[in-house]
Design a protein around this nucleic acid. Structure first.
Lengths: 211, 211
DNA sequence: GTCTATACGGCGATAGAC
DNA sequence: GTCTATCGCCGTATAGAC
């Protein structure tokens, strides 16, 4: 059988120190100039190596992006676990705080934009999003099945969607110079969170109308 | 004085039939393959002309994108005016319906992603967004200054932000294969709209729990 | 005013030398 | 593990034909 040669291309080891440094350079480039600023030649220049070496570790640019996303995903899950612990009993507040982290959000927004046009990366983005979503939904469902606001039933999945999405879209708009309604929406979410996850132990405690 | 020759480059007229056809091809390419799929050579191939001719009308790719965005912006404003008229007395419902238009949203999402990495286009995106935002805020403020839900003040700008943003982020996530919480959030918004903009003339009328 | 031909450097990617 | 040579596609610029 004339099997199509299963790619004899050599690839660097995953534990290589160089490899990690290349991922660092890539992440930096991505935050500074967006994913379009990530080229073999520029990653190489930033890390002080040749472009060919970058290609040795990451045969295609998709390989590079996927490796970076994978690394970030794990540190993100760790970070969320820490924020959750710091906000014991208030998972929504934890999700909100975590989602508002600028660096993390900026990178994920970059990856979302990237995934929109790179089929190979889409699956990885989806997997990372699924992991994150699962962790956060678990945190929510531990506390209550459903919230109600003025008689309207608010399912946890909708709350999670909004808490995750609002900071992302604000970040995108902000990068374009548009901030209309941002301040007001942030305040609204804060009010909402204070209402269903009051600081004190008393459920539905009334907050002073501060600020 | 050795003035740098002020660019003697010739450009096609704005009323050219060819020019319009090139914009059509560009818009199609953008919807099919994203902005990254837009190249001189591919636009030319789609329109059945040479790449050089595309450059004659649009000296740089930014010129091409900006011209397309400008054209879309005007037809979008027209469309919103029509939807507003069809939903007389319910501007929020009109904004929601308009924002959920798939083609329009997909193009604007594409442009937002594009603007993130192309400085020259950012200003144009901001201007277009500003025009759209102004028209929609005007429509809202004609009806009421502020809404209240369960005692929480909901400023019009926050409502507008959410009504505009939610369909966009759902579109982005949907393209990545993620739809968690979408259905529930859409239902939530519908409930909210039904509450503050009831179908009948009676304020705060209760809707039947259909579907 | 419309359109074509050609050239240049940067890019992702491949194959193979040290 | 590291690096060079090479290929084809890209945006862009320019000179010139109809």
């Amino acid at each position: 059988m004339t099997v199509p040669p299963p790619s004899t291309r050599r690839v660097g080891t995953e534990t290589s120190k160089t490899r990690g440094a290349l991922l660092d350079s890539t992440e930096q480039l991505m935050l500074e100039e967006g994913y379009a600023g990530v080229t073999y030649r520029r990653v190489a220049a930033k890390a002080g190596v040749t472009a060919g070496l970058v290609q040795y570790y990451f045969p295609t640019l998709d390989d590079l992006f996927i490796a970076l996303l994978e690394r970030r995903s794990h540190s993100n899950l760790d970070k969320f676990a820490r924020v959750l612990e710091a906000n014991d009993g208030r998972p929504l507040r934890a999700i909100w705080e975590y989602s508002r982290d600028e660096t993390t959000a900026a990178l994920m927004v970059e990856f979302m934009a990237l995934g929109n046009h790179r089929k190979a990366i889409r699956a990885e983005i989806a997997a990372v999003g699924e992991r994150s979503h699962k962790a956060q939904l678990e945190a929510i469902e531990k506390m209550a099945g459903r919230f109600k606001v003025d008689g309207m039933v608010v399912p946890p999945s909708a709350v999670l969607f909004l808490l995750q999405s609002i900071p992302k879209i604000m970040l995108m708009e902000g990068e374009l110079g548009r901030t209309s309604g941002h301040k007001e929406t942030l305040a609204l979410v804060d009010d909402f969170l204070a209402r269903i996850e009051p600081q004190t132990r008393k459920p539905l405690a009334r907050r002073r109308t501060s600020a």
